[in-house]
């Protein structure tokens, strides 16, 4: 990524340029730069922002909690809603409720997420004044304790709903297909023949097996969800990693861009590790 050189540097005088290059170690051979970079990552050092001159580690770690808050809330809500609705639709396959649900989720999938955010801001923020439209908390209000939590929650609601609308469809679709598949299995028929109630068949026998592909999809979608967060954080001026990345890209602040990608990658890897722990709980065939 070092080979991408921002416009600013072109405008600098040669002395300034040399100074900047020296400071960021850009005058050394590319391979050495790369080794230095890897070495410093291992030490927890992601370099310094070209813009603010602050350490990237600090900038990123300041933003990361907000993205985590947003993403984790989103994943939990999307999974619960997607799984519940997917199960419901699969159980009533081909009936009216299935068709209605399918169309709702196709609709969700087809809306540009940033646009949903804009509409929310216009209606529930600017017009009705129910929710704050900017940032993650009212920094200047000086809230403490419980008030602060409420304040943060209020700021979280609209971005989360927007993100859920963006991410829930794929979970719903996966759950529905997977559930339909499982419901066709012989062990479901067996469970019904044993005289178990529909509820029991659905939740103990079908659900557990149908959830396996959903875990995969949720984890595969981590990247997509983080990507979605980029744009939604921008709409709501939410101070997360996504917005940081966007600012860094427009400012050509490469160390920050690298830092963001590094953190996002870590998150995706972490998600996959978590998935590896969840699989054996659901499926005894995976040990």
């Amino acid at each position: 990524m070092k080979f991408i050189v921002g416009e600013d540097i072109v405008l600098m005088s040669s002395e300034e340029k040399a100074e900047v290059l020296e400071k960021h170690g850009l005058n050394k051979p590319v391979f050495e730069q790369y080794l230095n970079y890897i070495g410093s990552i291992l030490k927890g050092d992601l370099g310094y922002s070209y813009r603010s001159q602050k350490p990237v580690t600090d900038i990123v770690s300041e933003r990361l909690p907000w993205t985590l808050l947003l993403s984790i809330t989103n994943i939990i809500l999307s999974t619960i809603i997607g799984v519940a609705m997917g199960t419901w639709a699969a159980w009533n396959r081909g009936k009216k409720i299935d068709i209605v649900l399918n169309n709702i989720f196709v609709f969700f999938r087809s809306m540009p997420s940033f646009w949903i955010g804009m509409i929310f801001i216009a209606v529930f923020g600017a017009r009705l004044g129910w929710f704050p439209i900017f940032g993650a908390q009212s920094v200047w209000a000086g809230y403490m304790g419980f008030e602060k939590i409420v304040d943060i929650a209020m700021h979280l609601i609209m971005p989360t709903i927007t993100l859920v609308i963006l991410s829930v469809s794929s979970i719903y679709l996966t759950m529905r297909y997977s559930m339909i598949d499982v419901l066709g299995e012989d062990y479901i028929l067996m469970a019904k023949m044993k005289g178990l109630s529909d509820k029991k068949v659905r939740y103990t026998h079908a659900m557990r097996n149908a959830l396996i592909p959903v875990v995969t999809i949720v984890m595969l979608n981590m990247g997509y969800m983080v990507g979605g967060a980029t744009i939604i954080e921008t709409v709501f001026s939410y101070p997360g990693m996504g917005r940081l990345l966007f600012e860094a890209v427009t400012n050509r602040d490469y160390p920050v861009i690298q830092g963001c990608f590094f953190m996002i990658t870590i998150c995706v890897i972490a998600a996959n590790i978590i998935a590896d722990f969840i699989y054996p709980l659901l499926d005894p065939r995976v040990v």
Binding site: E185, D186, Y187, M190, M193, G195, H205, R208, N209, P284
Partner: peptide, 24 residues
């Protein structure tokens, strides 16, 4: 009513017993 009778009074060994056990 049927649920109370099924398996208690009349049981079935289905065609593909291989897949009639829940893997979980």
């Amino acid at each position: 009513e049927l649920r109370k009778v099924l398996w208690k009074d009349i049981a079935m060994i289905p065609q593909s017993a291989m897949n009639a056990l829940n893997p979980a």
